[in-house]
């Protein structure tokens, strides 16, 4: 690692995103402000949790980090570099280092591809960076599958042969294929049963400890965020409501919104 660990790996500076209102038969609807000046720092090697309800802007922010969405104003810096100012080539190189694991393991794996093809695809896309031969790609795919608790014997199988938890493991292996530093985890366990969720969460912790990954964890499940994350930001109607170390947010929330959200999460305790 070239940077010192105190540098944020990801810095979001005053990002706003405004969608033009839909124009219909009766004129144009008012523009929608999906993000209203969001700023936050994600420290290398940590897990940062972004919590918000539906419509809060968490998906818009995630899409902006991936540059699938252009912020209306503000900057997103990866290791100090403004992502908007990168050349197409530099952006491609950066994409190898920022990967995403999607929410729905049933929808995010191509059913016609084998697991081997799914996991080697990012290596082929980033071939100019990784320079792995076909044989090396296959070898690495087998390593990655072992790393996530599957094995080389699964390379030739197809997604439909796997359970939800196993599919999410394949999704994680794919995200790790290009050797990323930052993983965006978009509700990676919300489609899974609790027993399987526990396995996937523990796998994420193990991978972070072993590979030094940084996680940007998007969720609406406060219990999961509390279990996994070092820092938490609460987003509501496009603005950050509260941000800080996980224990501080949960034990001494400062805002009414945070108190309401924490109070509404059903605890495993009979009142």
């Amino acid at each position: 690692m070239s940077e010192s660990t105190s540098d944020p790996i990801l810095r979001i500076e005053n990002v706003t995103k405004t969608y033009a209102g839909r124009s219909g038969l009766f004129g144009r609807a008012a523009p929608v402000q999906a993000l209203k000046g969001v700023s936050l720092d994600v420290t290398r090697g940590q897990s940062f949790g972004l919590v918000g309800e539906s419509g809060s802007g968490k998906t818009t922010l995630t899409r902006s980090i991936l540059r699938l969405e252009e912020p209306t104003s503000g900057r997103i810096l990866f290791e100090g570099q403004d992502m908007a100012k990168l050349s197409a080539k530099a952006l491609r190189a950066l994409r190898a280092r920022v990967q995403i694991v999607f929410q729905d393991p049933y929808a995010s794996l191509n059913p016609r591809m084998s697991v081997g093809q799914i996991v080697t695809e990012p290596m082929a896309i980033h071939h100019d960076l990784l320079r792995l031969s076909a044989a090396q790609q296959r070898e690495r795919a087998a390593e990655l599958l072992t790393l996530v608790g599957l094995g080389p014997q699964h390379l030739g199988r197809h997604p439909h042969e796997f359970s939800g938890g196993q599919r999410q493991r394949i999704g994680i292996a794919r995200a790790l294929a290009s050797g990323p530093d930052l993983l965006l985890l978009d509700e990676p366990t919300s489609a899974l049963d609790v027993s399987v969720q526990a396995q996937v969460l523990n796998l994420l912790i193990e991978l972070q400890d072993r590979l030094g990954l940084t996680y940007f964890f998007i969720s609406h499940d406060l219990a999961v965020v509390r279990y996994l994350c070092d820092r938490v930001a609460l987003i509501h109607h496009g603005s950050l409501v509260e941000e800080g170390p996980t224990d501080r947010i949960f034990d001494a929330p400062q805002t009414d919104y945070a108190r309401m959200l924490i109070g509404a999460a059903p605890e495993l305790r009979v009142p």
């Binding site: 359970s163 609790v194 027993s195 399987v196 969720q197 526990a198 396995q199 969460l201 523990n202 912790i205 193990e206 219990a223 999961v224 509390r226 279990y227 996994l228 949960f250 605890e267 495993l268």
Partner: peptide, 23 residues
């Protein structure tokens, strides 16, 4: 028991969650 051990609570330490092995 196993179902309950898989749910994170305020006191679960990092890595302390127990998944349920098998299918």
């Amino acid at each position: 028991r196993a179902l309950m051990a898989a749910i994170p609570t305020r006191d679960t330490p990092r890595g302390g969650l127990q998944g349920l092995e098998g299918t």
